[in-house]
Design a protein around this nucleic acid. Sequence first.
DNA 1: CCCCATGTTCGACA
DNA 2: GTGTCGAACATGGG
Length: 265
Amino acid sequence: MPELAEVYYYASQWDPGHGHPITEVHLHPQARIFRQLPRPQRLIEAVQGQPFAETRTHGKQCFFRFGDVWLAGHLGMSGHLSVAKPTKAPGRHDHLVLRQAARQLVYTDPRMFGSWYLLDHSAMTAFWETLPPEVTSPRFTKERLHRFLQRRTRRPIKGTLLDQSLFPGIGNWMADEVLWRCHLDPRRPAGSLSKEETADLWKKLRLVCRQAMRIIGTSWGDPPPKTWLFPHRWKDGGRCPCGAPLVRETIAGRTTCWCPTCQES
DNA sequence: CCCCATGTTCGACA
DNA sequence: GTGTCGAACATGGG
C-alpha cells in the first residue's frame, strides 16, 4: 500500500500512544513479517514495560522507540497501522499488537510482505547515517541525481525512480506522477535525459514529495487535487486532464500509467 | 477459473 | 563488481 506520505500517515496513527508504557505484546512468531527477526520473542522482551517515546520515518521505513530500543518496520504492499480499543480481539491479519492501558497499537498485513526488526538505541545514530538522503533533503542535489541517471544507461526512467537507494519513499504512483509532470515518457532510458530534463526531474521530484507529505501525510481524507495525475489513474478509461485517454502498460515490471500526448518521447 | 494489486529480494545473465 | 530483468513471496478483490 504505502509510499512516502502514506507511510508517514500510518506511522502517525500510533501517536496517541506516545508517553505510555507497553503492558503486553501479542504477535504471531511464525508470521513472515518477522523474517528479519530470528527470535521474535526478543521483541516482547525488549518492548514490554517500556514507554513509547518517539516516532520517525525515512522513505517507506518507520521507526518507533520504546525506551532504549527502536522497533523498525516496513509496511510492504499491504501493511497498515491503526489504534484499537484495549479490549478488541486481534484480527486474522493483525500480526503485531502492542497493548497499552488505554489502547492497542496494531499492525495489520494480509500479504505479509512487510518486515519488522529491532535496533539498539546506541546503534541508531550510525544506522541513520547510512540511509540515503531523502528527496526533499539538501543532500539530494541535482548533481547527485545526474550521476545516478548516467549510470542507469539502459534502465527505463520509470524503473529507476523506484530504486529506494536513490529515491527513498518513491513508489509506483509517485513515480508516474513525477514523470507525468515532467512530460517524460516512462520508457525513456534514465541515461538519455538531457541536462535540462534532469534539472526539471529534480524539481518535480521534490515538489511531488513535498505536496504529497502536505496533503496526504497529514489528512488523508482530503480529495487529491484534480491537477494531479493521481485521481485519474485508477479507473479503466481514465483521462488525462488534457483530455487524452491514459495508457496503462507494464514497464520495468510494474503497471505504469501515462498520457501518450503529454509524455511523448 | 482468470487477472490484478501503492514492494522488495534473489538468482541468472550480459 | 555493475547493471538489468523476471520470478517469487501470500492474500484478497474484481
